[in-house]
Each structure stands twice: as structure tokens, then as C-alpha cells.
Amino acid sequence: MIVTSIETIPGYRIVKHLGLVQGSTVRSKHAGKDILAGLKNIVGGELTAYTELLEESRNEALDRMKTQASSIGANAVLNVRLATSAVTAGAAELLAYGTAVVLERVDG
């Protein structure tokens, strides 16, 4: 499945629009990691545990979006947007959404 943030793909033609598909996940942090991150707040810098957690969750959201797209018969998701929002302290929602389409190769 093709997943891109652009609207059209050279060499392909959109045969059918299938509408918006989305995938999201809400994740919270491990309490132990949270305490470590609290300590990091004193010296600053990157919080690697959080970066990994969000990266993982984002992939999960993208996977869910792809699952939804393939369930309605799409072979590509175009114009994908990613959003993150903090729901409460300690939990974040990762959202991925885009337009599901059926693409066809254009010859020549």
C-alpha cells in the first residue's frame, strides 16, 4: 500500500476516491519511565523513552489507517496528515488520517 503526504503521484492515476480514512491510538507512559523523565526535567535534553513511545504509537496509528483503507478496497492513502495531542497529563493521542484512493498505473 502506498502512503504519502502528497496529493498525486506521478505515473499513477486516481481511479476512485473512497473518502477519508483514519487511525488513532491513545498511549500513556510507563510509571517508571515517567519518574525518569521527571528527573530529566532538571537537566533538560531529549527524553528518548518518550520519543520511542510516540514513534511506536504513530506506527500503530498508521497501521490502523492502512487497515481501514484496505478494508474498503483502497490501494493507496494520499495526503496523509499526522497529529499529536496531549489528552491528559501522561497520555497522548496520535492520529493519522488521509484520503483513501484506488490508483492505477499510467503507461508511458
Binding site: I2, V3, T4, S5, I6, I9, P10, G11, A37, K40, N41, I42, V43, G44, G45, E46, L47, Y50, T51, L54, E55, R58, L62, V80, L82
Partner: peptide, 21 residues
């Protein structure tokens, strides 16, 4: 341009230090 047209992401979580806060 040619294939692959793939979504790539890069993210980082940073926190400010005590002094900066």
C-alpha cells in the same frame, strides 16, 4: 522524480531544564 513515494517521519521529545524553566 520517481518512486518510492513513501511517508517518512522524524520526531523528537525534548524537555527544558530547570534553569531554563
Amino acid at each position: 522524480t520517481s518512486i518510492p513515494y513513501v511517508l517518512v517521519t522524524g520526531s523528537v521529545v525534548v524537555s527544558s531544564d530547570y534553569f531554563k524553566t
